[in-house]
Write a protein that binds this DNA or RNA. Sequence first.
DNA 1: CTGAAAGCGCTAACAT
DNA 2: ATGTTAGCGCTTTCAG
Lengths: 312, 312
Amino acid sequence: MKYTINEIAKLCNVGKSTVSRVLNKDPKVRSETREKVQRVIDRLGFQPNRSARAMRAGQEPVVGVIVSKLDSGSESQTLRAILQALQAEHITPLIVESRFEAEQVRHHFQLFRERQVNAVILFGFFPLPLEIVREWQGSLVVIARTYPNISSVYYDDEQAITRLMTELYRQGHRRIAYLGIQDSDETTGKLRTQSYLQFCRSHNIRPNSVSVELSAESAYLHCAELFTRPVDALVCATGRLALGAFKFSQQSGRVFPIAYVGYNELLQYMMPNALSLDFGYCQAGLKAVELLMRQLRGKSSTEHYLVSTHQP
Amino acid sequence: MKYTINEIAKLCNVGKSTVSRVLNKDPKVRSETREKVQRVIDRLGFQPNRSARAMRAGQEPVVGVIVSKLDSGSESQTLRAILQALQAEHITPLIVESRFEAEQVRHHFQLFRERQVNAVILFGFFPLPLEIVREWQGSLVVIARTYPNISSVYYDDEQAITRLMTELYRQGHRRIAYLGIQDSDETTGKLRTQSYLQFCRSHNIRPNSVSVELSAESAYLHCAELFTRPVDALVCATGRLALGAFKFSQQSGRVFPIAYVGYNELLQYMMPNALSLDFGYCQAGLKAVELLMRQLRGKSSTEHYLVSTHQP
DNA sequence: CTGAAAGCGCTAACAT
DNA sequence: ATGTTAGCGCTTTCAG
């Protein structure tokens, strides 16, 4: 049931190197021989042993993928693209969850070392000590965050917020509030908040914002603080926060337009009118793999790739 | 930077077989020698080549995992458990999505053959032609569905529905409606609907049910049909359907208790009062791997394992 | 207890 | 164009 290249060779009356050549599409095989061999291969359903090949090739490439949560909408999209791209390259992905905990990431990195993982794609949807990632410099791509000397695919946070604000402004809203993340989070937090403040400044809007933790519940609890002043519309830094805001809206009976950055199937379903702006998550995944491949092939050093928001 | 067993051997002044023995914890090595070798291994951070080992061992085990959707709440939970269990066994999981399409499943099975995948765990959250799965008999575990002669981990649908109904009944509701899936879906559809009807019969409730497709939108669109008659409470076959019902409730302004089978973080957040009953998804994953391992070790034939609902 | 030697299945020089 | 041969890094006899 399990054939080897040797047995195929015997059955074809050729040397095993010829079989190998057919397998590897080496052009210098007479087409007649090739067909003869190929026929036998097909008939027997022969598959060359992966491990043996990997050994000869030096190392079978394995890429670790650290997602923060398997069931997060935007991450799933990116992950989907990553898996496909990786499988096309015949690279085996090893998927693990960080659950937004730095400790988990540290643990997984160590495990990756033991398992001889060649490179890692890390979803950096939360702040992470620099020292943890630095060790993998050269074989690491971080998504959604940038670190010095580490390749990354990150999102154009500023553009996203600006776009949402512009649209709401265009619709005539002036008292636009903002529900964001604390500044300790460099990108999703600080950067997006700053963009909001920037927009307010340049459009003469009196800022009305509050920073919360990255959870729907936190958003829900703090939402009321914004409404001590009149609010025409609300911009949320992420889908999770928007969910909290939505609940606040439901519970308090206040109706107001909500806009948010991100993608969430359920949220989109429940609030079809909400203005949402998501990044090219699929593209981000593809790009991450691309950067990683370039690193692995040793052709390039650090690269950063900026993903814009989708056109609405 | 990359050592081999040979180099370690030289550095220790021992034969490479001794190093191998240390690596494999062979007891017949003098503890003195063992320590000497181990020290060098540790100091150099030597890791035996995975591919070479796999080749000798015959085959590195790879298990394909076909989920229906990466970002489905209940599946993610199970998947999480599966990944952990598999990694503990040092088995590499190959994850792909079926997107609820039989054609995708067929495609992936074929790809698995090519990539020499040893066994498969399949999330059967939708009906699938028998011929597709039969070919993998003996190295396949199906989750959430049963097939003749195929190992499976399935859910106690009847118990789940009965429990929900019982609880609503206990709360005093009598006109309990049911939003289910068409009978073409053997388990989530037919079985659950029958359980509902059964309960109605035995409790003298006039059935009021409608069968829809497995999507929130379908549930939403058909929900109104139930309300042509008075309804005290609604039971939904799945979380997705409950979401549709929730939207209906929001839009129509009708307030009624909703109960559903399944797990959905967002839904739970938006409808904290809803009665929901989920299965031991984590346990299901663990069990699936366990059944698979038994199959792989050739010790057992087909087994079925029934997962009950969690105690509320 | 330990070392030498024989492969595992495959690829890549090297011959022919 | 094709066969022969020498390993890749490891485990496992088989002798000491």
